[in-house]
Every structure is written in C-alpha cells, then in structure tokens.
Design a protein around this nucleic acid. Structure first.
Length: 245
DNA sequence: CTCTAGATTATCT
DNA sequence: GATAATCTAGAGC
C-alpha cells in the first residue's frame, strides 16, 4: 500500500495547493484490475463563493457540498450531461475551494487505462444509439483508443475521470487515505510543483481557466490554470504530433 | 492544421 | 426552462 500525500499540503490557499498538486500521483485501485497510476500535469483552482466561476457561488447545498468540507476529499460532478470531473477539496473546512484535475500523464496500468477509456466511450455511445450491437462502430472506438499515444489517454478533465473510472459516487471520499480506491501519493519530484529533469520541462506555467466564459471579469482572466510546460499529456491540441505506438 | 456543431441530463434560476 | 469547470467527428483550408 502506498503512502498518501501529506494532507497539510492542501491546507494552504487554493493557488498554493493547486501548484503543489502538480507532479502528485493519482492512483486507482479497483478490485482485481491492475493498479492505475498517473502524474498530475494540469490543474485549475476554484476559490470560495466570491469566485464566480466556482460551483461554490451558489452556496453550501446540492452537488457542491463537499467543497465546504475538509481538505483532501474528492468533489466529483457531471458536466454537459455526459462527462465527469474530479476535484480535490482544499483549504480549511468551511472555505469552499477545490482544484480541478485537468490532465494526468499515465505511468502505470496503461492497458487498464485504455480499457477504461474504451468502456467509457462505448457506454456513452450506447445511450444515444439503438441497442443493436453495431460491431463496426464498436471496432472503430476500440481502434481509435488503441491508436492513442499513452500521453493522450487522460489529457482533459473528462478523460481523467474516464481513464481512472471516476464516477460521481466517489464524491466525498478521502483522497489522502491510502486505503481509498482513488488516492493521491507523493511524486518523486525534487521540489513541490517541479518535474524531474528528463521527464520533460521543469517549468510550471499559469494561464487563464478553460470553459468559464460565463463568469465574466476578472474571473475569466485570472491565471489560475497550472500546467507542466510542454507536457504532451496536458489538455488541448498538441504542437507536435506524437507517435501513435 | 483549424473551426464548429451537436450529444445529453443534473442542477441551477 | 436554460445552461454547463467537455469531447469528438467532420468539414474546410
């Protein structure tokens, strides 16, 4: 069993906690499936009720209730009717801040991750298509996922949840408990928020957050998205084409 | 390569 | 009743 991260890492203000989560390992243990492990390479910070991009702006009720709880728990919700997003609750209890895990670089259990991605896509397809087993379409999904480079398997918030089989049932679980089916473990980085040399760039950059245009200024512009510069596993289009294994 | 439409449903006003 | 912390396919260049 792995050691979990030190929860006090998450006691800081939300920006410090978000930065500190870069490089941390996300671990998924599911029954008899091989253990899935990845390195967090991209996050976004959502601050208390004043942040008009945050789900906490509606107050302490409904899906966002875990945000108001103690740090280190998961806040998981469904978005756009079909995707799931994983957050780490941070800050002292009562301060409803959280960090969205936007992208993870797969390190272990990669075939299990691929399988989970395929299952997720097929499940999504099943709800919209007739129940007939459309073997051509199923083969197309398997083929598309099978060709993806490892680094693209969890390169977006909805893809992280799909790759690590995170469902909304997981909201509220303790990610700092080494016995949790989904947990956080320390990376072997030389310093918080830093990536070892040879594993890509050392630097962590900050940009505005994605997909929150509704929040207006200043929230659309504050640089509260943190990512490993040039990481091939970060979300969005890549500059360079990746080998497709 | 970039751009855009459309899928889908819990949660919000 | 409207919208959303997204993603993919397909069209156009």
């Amino acid at each position: 069993v792995d050691r979990a991260i030190d929860r006090t890492l998450l006691h800081d203000d939300v920006l410090a906690a978000a930065r500190a989560l870069i490089g941390v390992r996300l671990i998924r243990a599911a029954g008899d499936m091989p253990r899935r492990v990845g390195r967090i390479v991209e996050v976004e910070a959502y601050d208390g009720p004043d942040d008009l991009a945050s789900h906490a702006r509606f107050g302490r009720h409904g899906r966002s209730a875990p945000m108001f709880g103690p740090p280190g728990r998961a806040y998981v919700y469904r978005v756009y009717g079909m995707y799931t997003c994983l957050n780490v609750v941070v800050g002292p209890p009562g301060s409803p801040s959280a960090v969205l895990i936007r992208a993870v670089e797969p390190l272990g259990g990669i075939e299990a991750i691929r399988t989970a991605r395929i299952q997720h896509d097929l499940r999504r397809r099943r709800s919209t298509r007739p129940p007939a087993a459309d073997l051509t379409a199923v083969a197309a999904v398997r083929d598309r996922i099978g060709r993806l480079a490892d680094a693209r398997l969890a390169a977006g918030p909805g893809l992280v949840a799909a790759a690590f089989s995170v469902d909304v049932d997981f909201t509220g679980i303790d990610l700092c408990d080494p016995a949790s089916p989904l947990r956080l473990a320390p990376g072997d980085d030389p310093a918080p928020g830093r990536i070892p040399a040879g594993q890509g760039s050392m630097s962590v950059i900050a940009t505005p957050r994605i997909g929150i245009a509704y929040a207006g200024e200043p929230w659309v512009s504050v640089p509260w998205r943190f990512l490993v510069e040039d990481s091939p596993a970060a979300s969005g289009p890549r500059r360079r084409r990746l080998p497709t294994r």
